[in-house]
Simulated scan of single mutants.
Amino acid sequence: MITVQGLTKMYGGFKAVDDVSFECRPGAVTGFLGPNGAGKSTTMRIIAGLTPPTAGEARIGGILYQDIPNPGTQVGVLLDASAQHGGRTGREILTMSAIMMGLPMSRVDEMLNLVSLTAGESKRRVRNYSLGMRQRLGIANALLGDPKILILDEPANGLDPAGIHWMRSLLREYANRGGTVLLSSHLLHEIEVIADEIIVIGNGRIVAEGTKAELLQTAGTFVKAGDMSALANALTSAGITASPSGDAGLRTEADPETVGKAVATAGVALVELRPAEGAGLEEMFLELTGDTQREQRPTEGVQA
């Protein structure tokens, strides 16, 4: 289990992580989401003992990372696939890790086979690897000591669709065997597919957390009409508050029957009327982190 309690990290006057607390339980994949600069990587570096916190603590299996004896056999970490020594071969990197952890050399071949790096590829210098190959090597290194916990920062970067499917299956099987996985990714669809629990961070603070079912379940109604202006007026006249939603429609907390009656009374022809449940991870993510996004819609003073 990973337990983060009151974690804060200051860089001068900038608070990169602000009183963050959460848990990652065994047997589950926890998706860690947030915009660029939200504090994901800093939090993961603190958990892995690479960055000291300003306040709070992060424990793995009840103890600090730096206090874990032979940590590679307890927790596997992949924070930057490009940080591997470019002058060494993939096999050399895994061999050195195996020696440091006191593992049999047979584990090297087992891991190369697991991540589908061929004998020829394992003998190439890492500087000549594609990003996808470096990711596979990094995952092999993280799994080398057969740890019970995995901490992976953007492990799908550089992987093709087949590679992403492979990684998804690998992590799902790992969690099903009782492993704990903390996984950050900007590929929202992949998190939606694989994660059991989701943590969303924005501006260094947790803005939402819970099981996937809890976070993606939304009450109310999604409604869309050919004349969206008339639809908005009809809802307002009926005292129903609505806000823009995905697919150029509106979402309201009112139930579908109430919305349908109000719109019918106003004579507005609908294109779509349905419960808003299962709106999707992307929509939820954008709603929760909208004020932290770099890419904002143009406002006053911007001309086409």
Results as ranks from 00 to 15, higher is better:
V29Y: 00
M10D: 12
E92A: 07
L183V: 06
P161S: 02
H189R: 14
I240T: 08
K261V: 12
R134I: 09
N203P: 04
G178S: 09
I164H: 00
E190F: 04
A195G: 05
D255H: 14
F222P: 07
I201Q: 06
L171R: 02
S237M: 14
N128P: 00
D18V: 10
A213V: 13
A304M: 13
P256K: 07
R251H: 13
G202K: 11
S243Q: 14
A238M: 13
E209G: 06
N113E: 14
A55V: 09
E253P: 11
E287Q: 15
A28V: 11
K9G: 06
Q296M: 13
M228H: 09
V259H: 11
N176E: 15
R294K: 14
R25I: 08
E173H: 11
T30F: 01
A230D: 05
L64R: 15
T180D: 08
L64Y: 05
I63E: 08
N113P: 00
A140P: 01
A276N: 09
G145L: 06
R251E: 13
M96Q: 09
L137I: 07
T252R: 11
N233A: 14
E253F: 06
A225P: 10
E154T: 08
S184K: 03
L182I: 11
I201G: 01
R107K: 11
G132T: 03
M101H: 07
A225G: 10
T51K: 06
P104W: 01
G87F: 13
A156I: 12
S243Y: 14
S106V: 09
S237L: 15
T236R: 15
Q303E: 13
V126S: 04
K123P: 00
I194N: 03
A140R: 00
V302P: 04
R25N: 09
G72A: 11
P104Q: 00
I199M: 04
E197D: 14
P161I: 12
E121R: 06
G145Q: 03
I199P: 01
A232P: 05
E154H: 02
G239V: 13
L103S: 01
A266K: 13
P35E: 01
R274C: 06
P161A: 04
E272D: 15
R127Y: 00
L7D: 00
I240N: 02
L187M: 14
P147L: 08
Y129S: 12
K224Y: 09
I99F: 12
R168W: 01
A208P: 08
T73W: 07
